[in-house]
Write a protein that binds this DNA or RNA. Structure first.
Lengths: 173, 173
DNA sequence: GAGATTTGATATGGTCCATAACAATTATCA
DNA sequence: TGATAATTGTTATGGACCATATCAAATCTC
C-alpha cells in the first residue's frame, strides 16, 4: 500500500478561488477515487496505524516518549530481572538495534543496565525511580488522552472487539 | 510500542534440553509477561500491520509487488489522466519520494509518464498493457490469497466491521 | 512582461530495520 | 580438564523509508 506521514500542514485554504471547476455543473476535479483501495486491509491498516502513532506522540509530547520507548518501559517494569536479549526479542527488536535505544533511555535516567552476577555476559534491565515515575505518568496520559479516544470514537464494546481482532491477526495471520 | 519484522527463523528447537527449569515445579522462565502491552492500541495495531504486510509480500512474491506499488497501480488505473502530484499526495507519498518509485514501475514497463499537452510541467500517469495485466493478476492474488485469509480468520461480518473501524480511525482519530 | 507558483526532480539527512562480525563470557562434551 | 561451540552485548554497515530544502522548466497572476 503506501501511506506515509507527511504530518505537515495540509494547507487547506478554503480558497473561494477553487482551482478546478467547469463553471457549471461538473463536480470538483480534485479528490481522486480511492476505489478498491479503501477496502484493502493493508492500506487501511497502515493508515490507521500511522494516525494512532501520531496521536500517541502528541499525547506523550510532555514526556518525550515514543511508542517503542513506552513499550520498553512497560515490559521492563512488568518483567524485572530480564536481560536485553529477552526484552528486545519479546518486542520484536533485534539486539543490535536495541543498544542505541537503551543508551537513550539510560542517558535520560529512565532505566539502567546491571551486570548480572550469574552470567556476567548479560545486562539485567531495571527501571530507575525516575523511570517508574515517568512510566506512571505516561500510563495515565496514554489511558486518559490516547486510549480514551477509541471509546469516544467506537464505544467500549467495539473497542474491545477491535483489539481482539487485531490481536488475532497479529498472532495468527 | 515497537515491533519490527525480524522475519527470520525463530529457531524454536523443540529442545528437550530446555534451558531453564528449577528441576521441580517452577514454570518456564521463558516467555515474558506482556501485561498491559497486549491492550495498547498502538502496539497491537503495529504488530497486526506488520503481519499483514508480510503476508501480502508473500502472496505477491511471483509478481514482485510491494503494498505501496500495488496501491499506486490501483490508484492510477482508477484515476487515469492524473499527474504525479495528485497520485502521490492521495497516497500520502511526498513528491520527492514518489520519483524513485515511479522510476521503478516505469523501468518494469508497468506504468508510463506522459508529458501533458495542457500543462507541460506535469506528467500524466497511465498503466501500460503489461501494467494492466499485472494488476489484474495482483488483484486476483490479493483477493484469493490475502484478503480471503481475513474471512477465514474472522468471518465475513467481523471482517467488514474491522475494515469499517480501521477506516474510522484512519480518518477521524 | 515581472514576479510568484506549481511540477517533477535531485540532493541530503534522519530514522528504522537487518546482517555480519567481534570480544568477553559461558556451555558443552570428548 | 581443556578445546570447541554457543550466547550476550556491541559496533559497523547497508538498505528501505521518510522528510526538507532547493532547482529548472513551465505556468499563473496581475
Amino acid at each position: 500500500m503506501t501511506v506515509s506521514k507527511a504530518a505537515g500542514k495540509s494547507s487547506e485554504k478554503p480558497a473561494e478561488t477553487a482551482k478546478g471547476r467547469k463553471d457549471v455543473a461538473e463536480a470538483q476535479p480534485e479528490a481522486l477515487q480511492l476505489g478498491e483501495l479503501s477496502e484493502q486491509l493493508g492500506y487501511i491498516l497502515k493508515r490507521a496505524q500511522l494516525k494512532v502513532f501520531e496521536n500517541f506522540l502528541r499525547c506523550m509530547a510532555s514526556l518525550q516518549l515514543t511508542p517503542a520507548q513506552f513499550s520498553v518501559l512497560l515490559l521492563v517494569e512488568k518483567n524485572p530481572g530480564r536481560n536485553q536479549t529477552e526484552i528486545a526479542s519479546t518486542l520484536g527488536i533485534l539486539r543490535p538495534n536495541f543498544v542505541a535505544m537503551l543508551d537513550n533511555l539510560e542517558s535520560r535516567d529512565l532505566c539502567a543496565r546491571i551486570r548480572s552476577t550469574n552470567d556476567r555476559r548479560s545486562h539485567i534491565l531495571v527501571l530507575t525511580d525516575k523511570g517508574k515515575a515517568v512510566l506512571a505518568r505516561a500510563r495515565k496520559l496514554a489511558a486518559t488522552k490516547h486510549e480514551a479516544r477509541l471509546n469516544d470514537l467506537l464505544g467500549q464494546a467495539n473497542r474491545e472487539a477491535l483489539i481482539a481482532m487485531l490481536s488475532k491477526i497479529a498472532s495468527e495471520f
